[in-house]
Design a protein around this nucleic acid. Structure first.
Lengths: 119, 119
DNA sequence: CTTGTTATCAACCGAGCGGTTGAGTAAGGA
DNA sequence: TCCTTACTCAACCGCTCGGTTGATAACAAG
């Protein structure tokens, strides 16, 4: 099993179907059947996906008769954001320092754009 | 292989060892041996981890004699941050709306904490 | 009590992951 | 040239993951 919370969260969101479900749940709570509708997988598979999201703390499930409304727990996103921001800022700082170094060198163009230009 | 870029990034960061390496690389570039030092796994295992990070676009590898310095590519973090922020903001908005509804009901306490209470 | 709906549990399967060891490649130095 | 350093490639192994089907639980309604 995934040891720490952060691993569980990242791992849960590594699956596109699960990210899709999070997107759906951001609009509002939904039942398992409602969540399953867009995908042509079994209800059991969807139930498993929800279990993963629940174990990661991304969703919670309550009870309404036979229905099991699923609710998005947005607080967990903060955990990720915090982790990401930390290293992004560190990396940006390094980048700025590199800028300074390059700016001090007259024969080198400042801030060469990354050569792997994405789409 | 993981289909989309976002899946690859989340999947890469789902491993605590790999997140640790990202943390190390945020401080500065490092060789494979330097990165492997803290962990008691084989160099080949570390090399594989780096391949995963590279495929996710999180790091790049150049060449310096026999050494292969690894460099953190911070731009990819933006991809994640964008995805996360989108749904976090949506969820927060919903939360605020719920607040309003509850505030309008005199016999219900405003913002009840999520009932994660066990059975 | 029986039927239908909603959802979970259990067992299984193929694919992929994280780890290993062993061999091979690329480069510097004796 | 041969040796050493730094690292990757290839094959294998056990475990987990996402999917399946079949059985079961919880509840509503007839």
């Amino acid at each position: 099993m995934a040891a720490d919370a952060l691993s569980r969260v990242f791992s849960a969101l590594a699956d596109p179907t699960r990210r899709d479900m999070v997107a759906r749940l951001a609009v509002g709570d939904a039942t398992v059947n409602e969540l399953a509708a867009p995908y042509d997988v079994s209800l059991q598979a969807v139930s498993k996906h929800l279990k993963v999201l629940e174990d990661a703390g991304l969703v919670s499930r309550s009870r309404d008769a036979q229905r099991r409304p699923v609710h998005l727990e947005a607080q967990v996103f903060d955990l990720m954001t915090k982790w990401i921001e930390r290293y992004r800022q560190q990396a940006e700082e390094r980048y700025r320092r590199l800028d300074d170094v390059l700016a001090a060198m007259p024969d080198v163009a400042p801030t060469p754009p990354p050569e792997g230009s994405p789409s």
